[in-house]
Computed example of a mutant assay.
Amino acid sequence: MKVKKFALPLVIALLVLVIGLIQGCGKQQATQQAPQPQVKDLILATTTSTQDSGLLDVLKPVFEQKTGYNLKIISVGSGAALEMGKKGEADVLLVHSPADEKALVDSGVGINYQLVMHNDFIIVGPASDPAAIKGSTAVEAFKKIADKKAIFVSRDDKSGTNTKELSIWKAAGITPEGAWYQKSGTGMGATLNITNEKGGYTLSDRATYLAQKNNFKLEILSEGDKSLLNIYHVMQVNPEKFSKVNKDGAKAFVDFMINPDTQKTIGEFKKETYGQSLFIPDAGKNEADLGK
């Protein structure tokens, strides 16, 4: 009985010690967790192709879980996204209109400008191919479409895709106009559906086309030109110009997009579904080497 009376306090003391150690470990783990951001809402202005392809549906929850930010995505054309940056209406931009992007960076509004990924543009149209553009270069295809006055649907929304389209018309020496040249004023997914309904042609980014090709009967008729390279960059909006910009959140998103784990996710996105990558990850690469 004496042994039992002596052992009981010892057991209790050991239990108290163990509980204290467990609580201490819990507190230590809590202190090791990343601090929650003071301003949680983060506004991302981006092109419709990153949204329509489904890529941001995959990346958004991962970013939010890792950082604690609430990512609010505004999906518009690159031109409208860059305009939001100019006005300080977004914290971070993910766009694909390099010439316009560089102008924003040169103005000091865009900072921490980073290469993220690329894919390419394609010219799609009906299987009947009334303008006989299949296998043509982009410029040749546009010339044939104009000569035949075959229906061409332009996004006409100052997006990166629209900017690329206009540059091809310029290279072809053509000012597109007339009933055959129709303007949708919508994003890529909607423009593809309109093109399908009208039996016409349009310029699309490959990712949106592949992600939505079951919704229409359009076929890829011209592809592969280096001029059709479609490059995406991410950048912060300069907090020194706009005091309300979420500086820390924007930097966290830029860091996230160029992180090796995210880059791996981008490279594998829907590859098994379509047998090809919708986007090629490019962080850390020399932009001049892309497409070679």
Rank of each mutant, 00 (worst) to 15 (best):
L93N: 03
F6V: 14
L15P: 04
E83C: 10
H233M: 05
D147Q: 12
V153R: 04
Q38W: 02
G125Y: 01
Q236V: 05
K27S: 04
S204K: 09
P239D: 09
A7C: 09
G291Y: 00
D248Y: 11
H96Y: 14
Q51G: 12
P98R: 07
V237E: 08
V16W: 07
Y113H: 15
G68S: 07
K244Y: 03
T202E: 12
V39Q: 15
T137Y: 01
I231V: 15
A90H: 04
G24I: 03
I111H: 06
D248T: 10
V109K: 09
N286K: 11
Q236L: 11
A34E: 14
I19A: 14
P37H: 06
A99C: 00
T161Q: 06
K198M: 15
L290V: 01
G189P: 00
D156Q: 05
T175C: 13
I73P: 03
I174L: 12
H96A: 15
K72Y: 11
S128L: 09
A172G: 11
S128P: 00
L82Q: 14
Y274M: 02
Y274A: 09
A81L: 00
E177M: 13
L93S: 06
D225T: 06
I174M: 06
D205S: 05
G178H: 13
F269G: 08
K198W: 11
Y181M: 12
S222N: 07
I22D: 04
L42Y: 07
K213E: 11
K247V: 11
V116R: 10
A7P: 02
R206D: 07
D41H: 10
V58Y: 10
A190F: 00
N70G: 01
S49L: 06
F256H: 11
T137E: 05
K271A: 12
V109F: 09
D289I: 01
R155D: 13
K247D: 14
K149D: 01
K27W: 10
L218E: 11
L218S: 06
Q23T: 05
K86G: 07
K144F: 02
G224R: 02
V39D: 13
L71V: 08
D57F: 13
E64L: 05
Y201F: 12
S128V: 10
N119I: 06
L21N: 08
A13D: 03
F256M: 11
D289H: 00
D147F: 07
I168H: 09
L203D: 04
N238D: 04
E268V: 03
G185Q: 09
G135Q: 10
E219C: 08
V3R: 12
